[in-house]
Design a protein around this nucleic acid. Structure first.
Length: 1048
RNA sequence: GGGCCUGUAGCUCAGAUGGUUAGAGCGCACGCCUGAUAAGCGUGAGGUCAGUAGUUCAAUUCUACUCAGGCCCA
């Protein structure tokens, strides 16, 4: 027996059962182990940080990942996929700091790094349970048991191997760089971290006067960071920019000519000069807190100087700006940095010592004003980065010694390799990611924090250094305990984190080497996952090189462009001169219904678990994939989920239920051999052909990673073709009591459609697909798979394109006919005498063949295919612009008008292939057949409807017989409704008694065979209705009528 | 300020190598159909295809600019 009443079970409940089934029967494991080892499809899981709650956008990314992997499995690939967790880094530390009430980095040291890192380690797994639950519940198949975890020694060892390799290649170096840093955590921010904090803010915008040493003149200089003025060492001008010397308010000022608009009040231009004329001019130090050890305080050239804002003269503070630092190296300028790492002025700056630099702005401006060095002060609104973890803490650009990876040395290669990656959507790869690579800057690798992979570089007092690339090498080091050296090899439970690794020393050539204290950017951890997840090169060397690298497919959110996508790509390029991934789907954000970003503070987030409980994971997954392409921002709308469930899943399940209901009645179990396709009725061949067309389309889209189109195609087929046409049209064949070849063919056909649709649906909605597949296959045992996810992708078995086209025509005619009936208030139950169809010649044959389908569908007795040159067809002509456009150019409009006015005669001539000669503006023109579209819109005296070359007309005249038949149909309809209301089974036989007026009774009697047959009535008696049975009163047309039915 | 994307019906989305009737679903109104369907079908109302300019015989489609939204980068 096929399982029945599927439509009455809740989706979440089915899903729970399927989950149990998968688990108990290890279906996921089998979906890998049963696939050929030599046909691997490699997928990389981007490790989420498990210390935050999973949200709906994670469901989106995971759905995409899962469905591609499941699809590839269907296609016979072996898709091994390991889960992974990102466990290091500042986000983890921030959480721990919060819980410990730590506000500043120094407090961590007081608290104890060992204890602190232990807390970090513990906190990482706070949400792991939730993540695993979500992963399992949504049906995301990934190996959670063998998940890679970035804090594991093995993982770190692989990362160290990578770092040592880069170090030995000379790609890691130490330098000053101006880096954005979070003054609160005293930590350098990576560009991706920095990006999180940009927001609009008000800052002072001040114009400052720098006095020339050689003249009583002033340079007018603009800045939005007054606190950096204390560290000023030079002024930069654009050598080719025009400057002016002006007299205003009794002072002589120098500024760019294009910036004169910043001058308040009247001025007089004294002199015009080029920037290069100013080079070398010395000026008086603005504030004298700091001494310099080199020549400073003069005008230099800077190519970054613009006249878009400010005064065209840029103040240079090498410690606090990237451009500043670059240019200062060129001129060998001193660097003044009277600011601590936490953004506070040092004692040197006596007036502002201990003040946070941004807070000192006002005081500095006041001092300038007092000393007459301020020209004017305004406030500007601009975007400025703030710390992404500490609200209202502005990022400070600061010169720090840092370790860098020389990614610029492979920048070109990265660009080249990127061109071989298939990005979905392509513009992210070519545009966003490509541009980022073009502008590549060296990767700031080090972080002065605690909970991360330690940088494995050991340095001696004289600056000699080496990198350690394995635990084996580390064992050559020692630690000191009470003055005794203990070899690392003898240490139990090695932990490759701080503070332990900091205790390890090496002695080489009589020198002692100590580890540099920094840890590394967590993004290096995740970028190293292709090899680190397999502990390469210490283990799995062969498999890695053969199978696990590079990935065939990855998928993450757009926010990973500069994050994981970049680090994967950069590391793979540097280490293996290869891409890290061949195909990538980039998914966009999920916004709320109103297009707002979802965030905890807005309270508009969606809890995935709620959705799973309410609608099921399948519905959620299907919705996310089909609503809009994943690489477009999705506006999340819960009501649309309801619709998805009703429309697609409802229809699919009902189609299955229909099949199950009748297959059980007929004891169909597919034990007979299949009826050859070419022996099946037309409608069966048609749906099988359509089904195969769907498989083709699906495969094409999936292989192009356009998963939305693939899923939409499945949905359209299921709803429009399978359910609303095939099943509806074929219902009667299933009702028939006797089993014959024709009926067998119907069962086999519908069965095949359901199994195939289940397979195509399975990557997207793995639960319901499993349910349907198993319900079918367990009974028939047609395939030897215990799960749809172990099955093979359907192969193309049968196509009959001409038949598909024919049915298209028939469907079009039916739709038009129904439109006429609707417009003229002619119920479909009322049979009509005749319809006429006018079509183009090449479709006439198709139409004739589809006659029966059409007539049955629209309840009309006769179909006349009309010759379109028949007298009663009225034709009009229309210009074919595609043809006349290129031919007649400017005369198009006149020609079109001419064609529109063609009469019967011209149309006939054109149709017979004759050219029509005409004259416009004195030029002779020839209008040929291709230039004209002939339409047969009207048939004289008939109601018509037409569309794209098909015109349908129906004869609305009724006769007595037709009216009687209409009444009989109405009667059947009432009886059927009663059967349903009475709760009779579809196979129950009944007796009917009825009363009504003479006309109705006559109709019923005349059509009694038809009525009995339709309603499974043994007796159909016109009599006074007595008590008993199930009775209802009806109005049929204008007639009253009472009906009683009883089960026999 | 720069880069990329988006703007089509009240809402969510299709589509168009440039061609004269721009589609679907939801919602609304009316009607139909129902022996699987808490379904389905039809009709109707609803669109200056964001705006402006240009190229062209012809632009919603191509180009430029503008506006609005989003993301990324400064």
């Amino acid at each position: 027996m096929f399982k029945q009443n599927l439509e009455k079970i809740s989706y979440p409940k089915i899903e729970e059962e399927i989950l149990k089934f998968w688990q108990e029967n290890k279906i996921f494991e089998k979906s890998i182990s049963t696939r050929d080892e030599n046909r691997s499809f490699t997928f990389y899981e981007g490790p989420p940080t498990a210390n935050g709650k999973p949200g709906i956008h994670h469901v989106m990314a995971r759905t995409l990942k899962d469905l591609v992997c499941r699809y590839k499995t269907l296609k016979g690939f072996r898709v091994e996929r390991k889960a992974g967790w990102d466990t290091h880094g500042l986000p983890v530390e921030i959480e721990v700091e919060k819980s410990l009430g730590i506000k500043h980095k120094s407090e961590v040291i007081e608290y104890g790094i060992e204890k602190y890192n232990q807390k970090c380690r513990e906190s990482v797994f706070t949400y792991l349970d939730l993540w695993e639950k979500m992963t399992t519940r949504m049906g995301y198949w990934i190996d959670l048991d063998s998940a890679y975890i970035t804090l594991d020694n093995k993982y770190i060892e692989s990362v160290w191997w990578a770092l040592k390799t880069l170090f030995d290649k000379g790609l890691i170096y130490k330098d000053y760089k101006i880096v954005p840093q979070d003054p609160k955590s005293e930590t350098v921010l990576s560009s991706h971290e920095l990006a999180l904090g940009y927001r609009e803010t008000k800052d002072p915008s001040v114009y400052v006067l720098f006095q020339r040493l050689d003249a009583d003149e002033y340079f007018l200089v603009w800045t939005t960071t007054p606190w950096t003025l204390i560290s000023n060492v030079a002024l930069a001008v654009g050598p080719d920019i025009d400057y002016v010397k002006i007299k205003t308010n009794g002072k002589v000022l120098i500024l760019a000519k294009d910036r004169l608009s910043v001058i308040d009040g009247d001025y007089e231009i004294l002199e015009e000069l080029k920037g290069k004329d100013l080079l070398g001019v010395e000026y008086e130090q603005l504030f004298d807190y700091c001494d310099v050890d080199r020549k400073a305080f003069y005008v230099i050239a800077g190519d970054f100087v613009s006249t878009e804002d400010g005064s065209g003269i840029v103040h240079i503070a090498p410690a606090f700006g990237a451009d500043d630092y670059e240019v200062s190296k060129k001129y060998n300028l001193p660097m003044l940095q009277p600011v601590t790492r936490s953004g506070v002025f040092t004692d040197e700056v006596t007036d502002f010592a201990g003040q946070f630099v941004k807070d000192a702005d006002n005081g500095i401006i006041l001092k300038l004003k007092k000393e007459g060095k301020l020209y004017k002060k305004e406030t500007i609104l601009h975007t400025y980065p703030f710390s992404w973890r500490h609200q209202d803490v502005p990022v400070i650009y600061y010169a720090r010694e840092s370790w860098f990876i020389r990614t610029t040395s492979v920048a070109k290669r990265m660009v080249e390799l990127n061109k071989t990656i298939n990005w979905q959507p392509p513009e992210v790869g070519a545009g966003r990611f490509g541009n980022w690579l073009e502008e590549n800057k060296d990767w700031a690798l080090s972080r002065d924090r605690f909970w991360a992979t330690p940088l494995p570089i050991w340095v001696s007092d004289d600056g000699d250094m080496f990198a350690v690339g394995s635990i084996e090498e580390l064992k050559q080091g020692f630690i000191e305990d009470n003055g005794k050296r203990i070899s690392v090899a003898d240490v139990e439970n090695l932990d490759l984190h701080k503070p332990f690794v900091d205790k390890i020393l090496f002695e080489r050539n009589g020198k002692i080497y100590k580890r540099t204290p920094e840890v590394i950017d967590v993004w290096f951890d995740s970028g190293a996952m292709p090899f680190a997840q397999y502990h390469y090169p210490f283990e799995n060397k062969e498999n890695f090189e053969k199978k696990f690298f590079p990935a065939d497919f990855i998928c993450e959110g757009i926010d990973q462009t500069r994050g994981w996508f970049y680090t994967l790509h950069a590391i793979a390029t540097m280490l293996f001169d290869s891409v890290a991934f061949r195909n990538v789907i980039v998914n966009e954000l999920i916004l709320d219904k109103n297009g707002m970003k979802m965030s905890k503070s807005r309270g508009n987030t969606v809890d995935p678990f709620d959705l799973f409980d309410k609608y099921g994971a399948d519905t959620t997954r299907w919705y996310l994939v089909t609503n809009s392409p994943p690489w477009r921002p999705t506006l999340f709308d819960e009501e649309a989920l309801v619709e998805v469930q009703r429309k697609f899943f409802g229809t699919l399940v009902n189609t299955y239920s229909f099949f199950a209901l009748y297959a059980n009645i007929d004891k169909f179990n597919f034990s007979d051999s299949p009826v050859p396709y070419n022996e099946r009725p037309e409608i069966d061949r048609w749906i099988i052909s359509k089904l195969n067309a769907l498989v083709e389309e699906y495969e094409k889209q999936m292989d192009a990673y356009d998963v939305t189109k693939a899923a939409r195609a499945v949905s359209d087929f299921t709803i429009d073709q399978l359910s609303n046409w095939y099943v509806r049209r074929s219902r009667r064949r299933f009702w028939k009591s006797e089993m014959n070849k024709e009926k067998l063919s119907a069962y086999q056909t519908l069965y095949e459609c359901l199994v195939t649709v289940a397979k195509l649906t399975s990557p997207f909605a793995p639960f319901i697909a499993e349910e349907i597949y198993r319900n079918l296959n367990t009974v028939t045992k047609k395939e030897n798979y215990e799960s749809v996810h172990l099955a093979d992708f359907p192969s193309i078995t049968y196509r009959e394109p001409e038949l598909e086209e024919k049915m298209d025509v028939a469907q079009k005619v039916v739709y038009l006919t129904r439109a006429i009936r609707a417009k003229n208030n002619l119920k479909v139950r009322q049979p009509l005498k005749r319809m006429m169809v006018v079509v183009e010649k090449d479709k006439r044959d198709a139409l004739a063949k589809m006659k029966d389908v059409i007539l049955d569908e629209v309840n009309i007795k006769e179909l006349v295919v009309l010759d379109d040159d028949s007298e009663i067809v009225n034709k009009t002509a229309k210009a074919n612009f595609k043809s006349i456009g290129p031919k007649f150019g400017k005369k198009v409009k006149a020609v079109a008008e001419l064609i529109k006015n063609f009469g019967k005669d011209e149309i006939r001539r054109i149709e017979s292939g004759e050219n029509i000669e005409t004259e416009i503006d004195g030029d002779k023109l020839l209008i040929s057949k291709d230039d004209v579209e002939i339409m047969s819109h009207q048939i004289e005296g008939w109601v018509v409807e037409s569309e794209e070359g098909v015109t349908v007309a129906i004869d609305t005249e009724l006769n007595e017989k037709l009216i009687e038949e209409g009444l009989a149909r109405e009667f059947v309809n009432r009886v059927q409704n009663m059967r349903k209301d009475a709760g009779f089974d579809v196979t129950d036989k009944i007796n009917i008694s009825f009363t009504g007026n003479a006309e109705l009774v006559k109709a019923i009697i005349n059509f009694s065979d038809y009525i009995s047959n339709e309603t499974l009535a043994e007796k159909l008696i016109s009599e006074k209705i007595t008590d008993g049975g199930f009775r209802q009163d009806w109005k049929i047309g204008d007639f009253e009528c009472s009906i009683r039915i009883e089960k026999i």
